[in-house]
Amino acid sequence: MFEWIISILLLIGGCFILVGSIGLVKMPDFYMRLHGPTKATTLGMASLLTAAMVFFSTTQAGLSIKEILISLFLLLTAPISGYMMIKSAIHHKLDCIERTKGIDNIEDDV
């Protein structure tokens, strides 16, 4: 029973991590590449860590909930590092692909 839950959670996590990295390689410009790692990889890690939590709670004595800390930490920090990266990309005026709408919305920085 628990083996099934762990396996499904592990597979979901692995799939999301893989999707995030595929997005990193496949997308044409930096701004689109950022979407894969900030979202898919974070959820993949959360799912994988939940699997680890269930695994250690069932195989070893006592409940093991400290894996939540890593997923909490990643959930908190992923948007901030994404924000810093897109800020530096805008500062360096990286090219976006041509069909990007609303480029005028970017203001010049000081």
């Binding site: 701004y31 950022l34 979407h35 900030t38 979202k39 974070t42 959930l75 908190l76 992923a78 948007p79 901030i80 994404g82 924000y83 897109i86 800020k87 805008i90 970017i106 203001e107």
Partner: peptide
């Protein structure tokens, strides 16, 4: 900004 980054296909930039 953090919730916008984590939720629907959007990343907050500035």
């Amino acid at each position: 900004a953090s919730t916008v980054s984590l939720t629907p296909g959007t990343v907050s930039a500035e």
